[in-house]
Simulated scan of single mutants.
Amino acid sequence: MSNSTPDIIDIKKIMGMLPHRYPFLLVDRVEEITPGESIRAYKNVTMNEPFFQGHFPGLPVMPGVLIVEALAQAGGIIVLSTDEVDTEDKVFLFTGINKVKFRRPVVPGDKLVLEISDVKRKMHIWKMKCVATVDGEVAAQGEVSAAIVDKESM
């Protein structure tokens, strides 16, 4: 990731960008970002996550759909970090999830690294490649797309 900003985006700034809140805010910090192009962020996975109570009792595994959601939230931060998007009264919603593969379980104590690249925009649709890793091993990978829509149209 070249030309990235040296500024780390902490949880307070993330909460200013994304509408998500506990228990659904799944990005803890951004380590590296090139607005509109790529991002490296992470989610610290702890036993305190509410989904571990039922997924699975005695064998806590982060649900794959939440790993994809964490990747999408990181992708949302890329889009929202650009100057080319008016985000007032708008929301960023999934339009597609493609070629997603899960390679290893994510469990309490893992640092889930979220990397988004190859960001492309066509009108109001954004597409991006996503990889989530733990200790350098791929946990999940695929492509997501999302659209910026008016809150009033929902």
Score class of each variant (00 low, 15 high):
99 K>A: 10
143 E>F: 02
60 P>K: 11
82 T>R: 15
118 D>N: 15
30 V>L: 12
154 M>Y: 05
58 G>A: 01
134 V>E: 05
46 T>M: 11
142 G>F: 06
21 R>D: 00
71 L>T: 07
153 S>W: 01
16 G>M: 05
77 I>N: 04
145 S>T: 14
27 V>R: 13
46 T>C: 07
110 D>P: 05
19 P>E: 03
64 G>D: 09
114 L>M: 07
124 H>P: 00
96 G>H: 06
7 D>T: 06
140 A>K: 13
5 T>W: 04
124 H>K: 14
1 M>N: 12
89 D>Q: 14
52 F>A: 04
127 K>P: 00
44 N>R: 12
8 I>W: 00
115 E>K: 08
42 Y>Q: 12
21 R>P: 11
126 W>V: 12
118 D>V: 00
23 P>M: 11
62 M>N: 06
47 M>E: 09
52 F>E: 04
41 A>D: 03
70 A>K: 02
19 P>L: 09
103 R>D: 09
120 K>Q: 14
24 F>G: 03
29 R>Y: 03
84 E>G: 12
117 S>H: 02
151 K>C: 14
138 V>S: 05
55 H>T: 01
19 P>H: 07
43 K>H: 02
65 V>L: 13
52 F>L: 09
98 N>S: 08
57 P>Y: 05
111 K>F: 04
105 P>W: 09
12 K>M: 04
136 G>H: 08
23 P>Y: 03
97 I>P: 11
62 M>Q: 04
